[in-house]
Write a protein that binds this DNA or RNA. Structure first.
Lengths: 342, 342
DNA sequence: CTGTTAGCGCATTCAG
DNA sequence: CTGAATGCGCTAACAG
């Protein structure tokens, strides 16, 4: 059914319209609608009726102009297409949306010029704060413009240690992954990583080594760096099996790499998880659930990271800036590729 | 290097600050900065210098309050996590971002209550227009509130024919897919679809049948409806091969289904594309490029759809509302799974 | 309890 | 060519 759209050209009702209809002054109408004291219950009633009748909606611009804050924040991403920005964005949207804050979304597409353009536009709109979402966990330069509102960097930390950054705990992720494999009884663990250029890959390796050292278990073979894709997983798994036939677990740099590894293992007649356990990183639903068997993976809790960034921004708005890099814990999501029963 | 953040608490410069520093009135300063005529070149110069010195940034709230339009639009999605909203959002952000428009992003999470909440907030912020992005191509109820700004529905059309909706051409997609397979010399074509509940699945089937009829080629077996996932593709392919061993092409409801079909074909010893051609829908990069061979797919041009929605909204803002449902063409992206050379 | 006044920052009249 | 005045819609002082 079509609620008829409000007639175009009809000026949207203003507070003075409401006041006039209710037979009071604008000030009284304002107080009534905003629940201030010192207004008679009956008057308040009349004002509310008038407002409803005119479907009055307070003009946030006017309010913001007066208050000096707008209840808006800017979310500046550099790579919307990338699948890591999205959950962060969702988490932030979630944390803000619950309250009275609206989010301006801007995609700089990895272009510094475009980023400055967006920052200026956002400042001109008088956002109360800014979240800058990176496209990888490698540190990024701070915003070029000097900004007089709080800024929180998410996923990619700012290179400036004076800034506040919230990042996933990649070292912890590597550690947790190995601990899970060990808990599953594996002792011949290999690591097929992703692109060595990414600090995420290197940080996870650090965690992997630390956990292995603590357990007194050596890594099987060398860490194999390559890409984040399935093809690399297939190729690397082939080489691994040739050199280290007695491997009983493969930790993969991403869920995609893990998918490739699973393919090669199946073709080589290795059973998963009986002969070889496999796990990935990112816990990307479409990758993990389509796999045979379903893929155990480390979830980087990106949505939580987004929420954390939003909360941190709130705090910075109300109080003083935080500084430095905070990490968000990740978690292992066990499935059939490491635990027979899962 | 850390450009020192502007000292907190320092009120951001206003036009009268600029005017004072330049030794002119606010009116003159305004004209100078906005490139109006009737202002001496030297004066203009002085004003610009003053503005730069104070890093003046005009307050969009004040401007919007005065002008009656804000240069903002609301993008209302119901399913950010879904992979179809994102490209649409990108396209829209792209089309708007090029100009002077900023985008409020809201995710209603498929909840009508939350949707109303967001609509009200956006109207209160005096957006100039609204794009409503659906999570499937099934028609959706129009916005519950009566809205006095233009609204464009994207992906999911509004149930109200008086509204303007922009949707992908699913019928055309089915048709193009079959035409591609026929062009590749296939005559024994089967269709493993997705979830029958979705109009997208049914519309594509319509296109498939139309194209087959035109070519005078019968469909091999029945249309197999199931889910959009890999597991369904594997299972359905097994049944298909049992019943119709001479099939030479399988059109799949999604790239994921196609991945499953490819797996089963390989296990059954059928070569792709030599024995059987395979193609999917959506052209989801991560699915198509990880496949062996790489997967031919129909791209629904969602980013273009987003841009089209943005453009349509522009037109509605400047002129009169459009009405009805417009479709955006899709395109086949050929890869190794249908054409040996690709 | 209610109304009057002032002003947030800006662009646009209209006089000078 | 420039400046003083007006008002966009609203809230916070104050005065009645």
């Amino acid at each position: 059914m079509a609620r008829s759209p409000a007639p175009r050209g009809t000026r949207t009702a203003t507070l003075s319209d409401v006041a006039r209809l209710a037979g009071v002054s604008v000030a009284t109408a304002s107080k009534a609608l905003n629940g201030r004291n010192h207004v008679h219950a009956q008057t308040r009633e009349r004002v509310f009726e008038a407002a409803a009748q005119l479907s009055f909606s307070p003009n946030s611009l006017a309010r913001g102009l007066l208050a000096g804050k707008t209840g808006t924040v800017g979310l500046l991403t550099s790579d919307l297409v990338g699948r890591f920005s999205l959950p962060i964005l969702m988490g932030a949207e979630d944390a803000f949306g619950a309250g009275q804050v609206s989010v301006f979304l801007c995609d700089a597409r990895g272009d510094a010029i475009r980023e400055r353009h967006h920052v200026r536009a956002l400042l001109s709109r008088r956002v109360d704060g800014l979240i800058v979402v990176g496209s990888s966990t490698d540190p990024r330069p701070p915003l070029a413009d000097s900004v007089d509102v709080p800024v929180v960097y998410a996923y990619a930390p700012s290179e400036n240690p004076e800034d506040l950054s919230i990042v996933p705990d990649n070292v912890g992720a590597g550690r947790m992954a190995v601990e899970h494999l060990i808990a599953c009884g594996r002792t011949r663990i290999a690591h097929i990583s992703g692109d060595r250029q990414y600090s995420a890959a290197r940080d996870r390796v650090d965690g992997v080594r630390a956990a292995l050292d603590e357990a007194g278990i050596p890594l099987v073979g060398q860490v194999a760096y390559g890409t984040w894709e399935e093809g690399w997983g297939r190729a690397a798994a082939g080489m691994l099996l040739d050199r280290e036939p007695d491997v009983d677990a493969v930790l993969c740099g991403s869920d995609q790499v893990a998918r490739g590894v699973l393919d090669t293992l199946r073709e080589r007649g290795r059973r998963v998880p009986d002969d070889v356990a496999v796990m990935g990183f990112d816990n990307w639903q479409v990758m993990t659930s389509g796999a045979r068997p379903q893929l155990t993976s480390v979830d980087m809790n990106l949505e939580e990271l987004g929420r954390a960034a939003a909360r941190a921004l709130f705090e910075s708005i109300d109080a003083e800036h935080g500084k430095g890099i905070r990490t968000v814990q990740c978690r292992v999501v066990p499935r059939g590729s490491t635990a027979p029963d899962a």
